[in-house]
């Protein structure tokens, strides 16, 4: 009884604030929560004329649609691959972004600074399809520029398309190349918001540039790093499909090292188009992502309670 009174009183007291919140809540409910009911299609044997809710349930208590993911033991390896690539790419591209942000903020010449930033930012606008053909023209055995260069320098030609392991690094490099400019903007913003007085005080105390970076810049951007990390963790089981598909495509030789959930699902269902199975794959990713973010947030909360998301 008391509880309900408390709730009503709270609502009455802050009614303006709640009214302001209402549109956002409504939007979230309509756009994010109501469509979740459609997830049920992952457990259905979808019929076009019956629609999502009237279609019959799939076999095996509704779990039939999930079987293709695990049937040949691939499910485990592609899940691991996806998590590994996302983590590896996250760490490398964020670390490099931070370095770039620090270097850019430390630059003196205004024109040179702007030019550098623009050049680093440029790859963000290049679509993966084009990057894919860059990669082919760069790495292929017969006419690739890398191999031409190696030969000119007296080395032997290498067929990179026959060495799956190399692609871990090639993918990492392309990912950094594409995202560093974009990500560094967030860090540049974080760094410029650091109080200039800190640096002036450090100058007076005789700190050199390395010390200033280590003791002022890095600790100040730490919250930004953690937030970005947490936000990206929620996507850790979603491969950047465009990147993997355009760089690797249908080259089966490389799949063992480069196959992620998204590419596996794409290849398996491209000619099937089974709505239930695609929904099942997405649900699988979402549930795992949800568990991971809960776990990571819990960890952060235990060690650095101020930085936890919720």
């Amino acid at each position: 009884m008391k509880q309900r009174n408390g709730f009503l009183r709270e609502m009455r007291r802050n009614r303006t604030l709640y009214a302001m919140l209402l549109p956002a809540v409504l939007l979230a409910v309509v756009i994010l929560y109501i469509p979740m009911a459609g997830l049920v299609v992952a457990f259905k044997n979808y019929q076009y004329n019956l629609g999502i809710f009237d279609s019959p349930w799939a076999k095996y208590g509704g779990f039939d649609n999930f079987r293709f993911l695990f049937i040949s033991g691939k499910g485990f390896s592609i899940t691991l691959n996806t998590a590994f690539y996302n983590l590896f790419n996250l760490v490398t591209s964020q670390a490099l972004s931070m370095v770039v942000a620090i270097v850019i903020t430390e630059m003196r010449g205004r024109i040179f600074k702007r030019a550098t930033q623009s050049v680093i930012f440029l790859p963000y606008f290049i679509s993966w399809i084009i990057v894919g053909s860059f990669a082919y023209n760069f790495f292929n055995y017969e006419i690739g520029s890398l191999n031409n260069m190696m030969e000119a320098l007296g080395g032997a030609r290498v067929n990179l398309y026959g060495i799956p392991g190399a692609w871990v690094f090639i993918i990492m490099a392309f990912n950094c190349w594409k995202w560093v400019g974009y990500n560094s903007i967030i860090y540049i913003a974080a760094i410029t918001s650091i109080d200039a007085e800190c640096y002036e005080a450090a100058d007076i105390d005789g700190a050199n540039i390395w010390r200033k970076i280590a003791y002022i810049t890095l600790p100040s951007v730490k919250p930004t790093v953690i937030v970005i990390f947490l936000l990206n963790i929620s996507r850790i089981l979603r491969g950047d499909f465009q990147m993997f598909f355009q760089l690797i495509g249908m080259n089966g030789q490389l799949f063992n090292a480069t196959d992620v959930i998204d590419t596996y699902v794409f290849r398996s269902l491209i000619s099937g188009g089974d709505v239930g199975m695609t929904a099942a794959a997405t649900l699988y990713q979402s549930v795992l992502c949800f568990l991971i973010i809960i776990a990571v947030n819990w960890l952060v909360k235990r060690t650095e309670p101020d930085y936890a998301l919720f």
Binding site: I71, S72, K74, M250, G252, F255, S268, G272, M277
Partner: peptide, 16 residues
């Protein structure tokens, strides 16, 4: 459908 999808995938990886 599950086995067929898995087979298509095996073909893309090992047969092509």
């Amino acid at each position: 459908k599950n086995e067929y999808a898995a087979m298509q995938n095996v073909y893309a990886q090992y047969y092509y």
